[in-house]
Simulated assay, not measured.
Amino acid sequence: MLILSASMGTGHDGVAAELAARLAAENADSEIIDVLRLFPLRLGSALRRGYRGMILRAPWLYEVIYQVFFVGKRAPGTSPLTVLAASRLRRLVDARRPDEVVSTFHLAAQITGRLRERGELPCPSTVLVTDFAVHRLWLHRGNDRYLCPNPDIVGQIAAQARRPVLRCAPVVRPEFARAVADPGRVAGSVGVDPGDRLVLVSGGSWGVGEIIATARTLARSGRYTPLVLCGDNAGLRRRLREAGLGPALGWRDDVPELMAAAYALVDNGSGLTCEEAFAAGLPVIIHRPIPGHGRDGARSMARAGVSMHTGSASALLKALDHLEDARARKRLADRAGALFYSMPVQAGLISAPRWASSGSG
Rank of each mutant, 00 (worst) to 15 (best):
P174S: 07
V172D: 04
T225A: 09
A234K: 12
L218K: 06
R173K: 11
I157C: 10
A181S: 13
S189V: 04
R167I: 09
T225W: 01
R197Q: 10
N233S: 06
P151T: 10
G209Y: 13
G195M: 12
V186Y: 04
V192Y: 06
G191V: 09
G195R: 15
Y224H: 09
C168G: 02
R173E: 10
A187T: 12
G204L: 03
L166F: 04
L236I: 08
A179I: 04
Y224P: 01
I212G: 03
T225I: 03
V201E: 04
E210F: 01
G207M: 15
A213M: 02
A179C: 04
R163E: 11
E210V: 15
V171H: 06
L166S: 13
G184S: 11
P149D: 06
I153F: 05
R167G: 14
R167Q: 13
V186H: 00
A187G: 10
A215K: 03
V199L: 13
N150T: 02
L229E: 12
G155Q: 14
R178P: 03
R163M: 08
R162L: 05
A219D: 03
L198H: 09
V208N: 15
S189F: 03
N233E: 08
S205W: 10
R178T: 07
R185D: 04
G222I: 02
V180Y: 01
G195D: 14
I212Q: 14
P226M: 07
P151H: 12
V201F: 14
L227Q: 02
I157V: 15
D196E: 14
W206M: 08
L166M: 14
S205V: 08
P183Y: 07
A181Q: 08
P170L: 05
V192H: 00
Q156A: 15
A161L: 11
A213L: 11
I211Q: 13
L200I: 13
F176Q: 12
G155T: 14
V228Q: 09
G191L: 11
T225E: 03
C168R: 14
W206C: 05
P149W: 10
V199G: 00
I157A: 04
R173S: 14
V180K: 15
V228G: 06
S221V: 10
V192M: 06
R223P: 00
D196G: 02
A213W: 08
L166T: 13
R185S: 11
L198C: 12
P164Q: 13
E175P: 07
S189C: 12
A219M: 04
A181M: 08
A181K: 05
A161G: 04
P226S: 06
T225G: 00
R220A: 12
A213K: 11
N150Y: 05
A179L: 01
P174L: 06
G231P: 10
I157D: 02
L218C: 02
F176Y: 15
T217N: 05
A181L: 05
T217I: 09
V171M: 10
I157K: 10
A181H: 07
G195I: 00
F176I: 14
G188Y: 01
R185E: 13
W206Y: 13
W206N: 14
R163P: 12
C230P: 11
A161S: 08
L227W: 11
D182H: 05
I153S: 14
A181T: 08
G184P: 08
